[in-house]
Every structure is written in C-alpha cells, then in structure tokens.
C-alpha cells in the first residue's frame, strides 16, 4: 500500500490532487461531487466582493490539446457565496477559497470572509490573464504580490497561497515576493495569455479577444516554472497546468511540487480524473519500489 498523503505547509492532503480554481468550483454541489470523485482538496472559483457576470460568450473554446478561456472572473460575490461554502465545507476534503481583488484592502476583506465561511486556506488570484485591473495586471509586479500576501497573512490564520502568473519574464521573482510576504506556499501556474482567430469570421473568437490557454499544451511551461521556483525559493509549490494523467502529475511532483491541481483535465477525463490520476501515481510508485509519495517529491533536482 503506497502512502499518497502530502502536505503543503500546514495544509494536510489525503492525496496530491486538488481541483483547480475556475473549474466546477462555483457551486457547492459540484465542489462536493469533485471531492466525492477523489480529489484531495477543492479550490473554489475566484470570488470577489461584488457579483460579476464576466465576459460575454464565447468564453471557452477547445483548441488542439488545450482550452482557451476568457470567462472574466464571473462570480456571485462573496456574500452570496456564503451559502455555497456552508454546504461545500461539509464534504470530506479541505475547501480552499480562491479570491480576487484590485488591492490589498479587497483581498484582505475577502480572505477574512472566506476564513469565516470555513475555508481551510485561501488562494490569491494574482494571475487571471483576462480581467482589467485584476489578476495578472496586479500580480505581474512582485511588489504587489508581496504587499497583498503580507496584508492577507496579517488578517487570517489559515494558510495563504498566492497563485502566480507565467506571463512574466521571471516567475521566480514572483515566488520570492510571495515568500517575503509570508505565503505558506505558491500555486504555479495560471493560464498562458493567448488568442485564437477565426479566419472565416475575420475576428478573434473570444468575445474578450484575449484569454488564457490551459490544458496539455501548457504543461511543459508549468513544469519549467515549478522547477525554477524550487531551485531558487524555499517555499512549498502547488503545481498546475496541463495535468490529466498520473505521469503528468509526477512531472510536477518531481519538479518539486508538493501537490498538484487539475482543471482542464476535467474536459476529457470528467470529475473521475482525480481518482484516475491518483491510481496512476500509486501504480507508478509501486512499480518503482516506493512506499510513499514523499520519495519522489523534487526527485528531478538530484540528477
């Protein structure tokens, strides 16, 4: 029997798979379904202070080996989200509240609410690539990452995980800023800024024109980011980007991630993807004579 349990700072997980923010995370019943499907934790959709309808459709389109989205941070607002949290936190796994704001004050208010609603940790969305004045427009600057992380850390007692953007020259600077701000870990990566044009329609397909690319196509970018952060910054990393199989997850875990998140993997794999990824990790570890997931964390750095 292989031990798949892991931890990210103080956050204890029964297995290393978590639902990534933005996928099936807006409603309590779907969060519970993902938990029941085998995820080690679930991350909510990013929630702001006020309700937000997001961008008009098309907001999500399929590409080869990838999804392109510009949902635009649609969410019901933190007050309305209380009823979802009340139900979602009754499940078997930790619920991590993802939040977005335009400054430290908004992030702090939201984090305090999430803690009050029973979130086990908060994830700071400093990386959404398609919302004006939010996400990566703030989070691409290390100063903001440090200041917002510090502000949130000072007002809640649950772990704080900034989610970082890959759309910068050096993601290590952002991870370093998060560490300086007192983060309990970082989440890397959010989607890669991208565009698709329909030649026949003669225009970008997404209503917002620019969106974020996710899925298999971006996995090498995410793995590289996690590897670089692990080399330079002594902070736990949650790896995300293009994971849909156990071997995909193992790339991140060997790059140094303590846990992984799966989002677009739900597209082909359905909510059952969490159980199948865990099973494949377990089989790999058994095949290679390991009794614990810990044996392989960061393994790619020892070569």
């Amino acid at each position: 029997m292989v031990d798949l349990s892991t931890s990210v700072g103080k956050l204890q997980l029964r297995n290393p798979t978590m639902l990534a923010s933005g996928v099936l995370g807006e409603t309590a019943e779907l969060l519970l379904r993902v938990a029941d499907s085998g995820a080690g934790a679930v991350v909510t959709k990013s929630i702001g202070l006020e309700p937000r309808e997001g961008h008009p459709n098309p907001t999500v389109i399929e590409m080869e080996h990838a999804l392109l989205n510009a949902v635009g941070l649609a969410n019901p607002g933190i007050e309305a989200f209380k009823e979802e949290m009340e139900v979602a936190t009754k499940g078997a796994v930790p619920v991590i509240g993802s939040i977005f704001g335009k400054n430290v004050d908004e992030f702090t208010k939201l984090a305090v609410k999430m803690e009050e609603f029973g979130a086990t940790a908060v994830e700071l969305n400093l990386s959404c690539p398609h919302a004006e004045g939010l996400g990566h427009e703030i989070g691409a600057d290390p100063k903001n990452v440090e200041e917002i992380t510090k502000g949130v850390k000072g007002s809640v007692s649950i772990p704080v995980f900034p989610k970082l953007t890959p759309n910068v020259k050096d993601i290590v600077e952002l991870a370093d800023a998060a560490a300086k701000g007192g983060a309990d870990g970082v989440v890397a990566i959010n989607t890669v800024r991208a565009m698709a044009i329909s030649p026949e329609a003669g225009m970008p397909i997404l209503a917002n024109k620019i969106g974020g690319l996710s899925g298999t196509a971006i996995r090498p970018i995410g793995v590289r980011c996690v590897y670089e952060i692990w080399e330079e910054v002594p902070i736990p990393v949650i790896g995300v980007g293009g994971i849909s199989t156990g071997m995909d997850a193992l790339e991140y875990l060997m790059a140094g991630a303590s846990a992984v998140q799966i989002g677009s993997g739900v597209w082909i794999g359905g909510p059952e993807v969490f159980a199948s990824v865990c099973k494949e990790i377990e089989e790999f570890l058994e095949r290679n004579g390991h009794s614990s997931l810990n044996d392989v964390l960061g393994a790619a750095h020892s070569c």
Partner: peptide
Amino acid sequence: RCGIGVCGSCAFDGLR
C-alpha cells in the same frame, strides 16, 4: 458557457 463540462455555469445541483 463552455458546453464541455468544465466551467460549471450550467450547474443543476450536482449535475452539469
């Protein structure tokens, strides 16, 4: 929104 079971916009209790 997505039509492919990812975004959760068409949530109907625990069903997509």
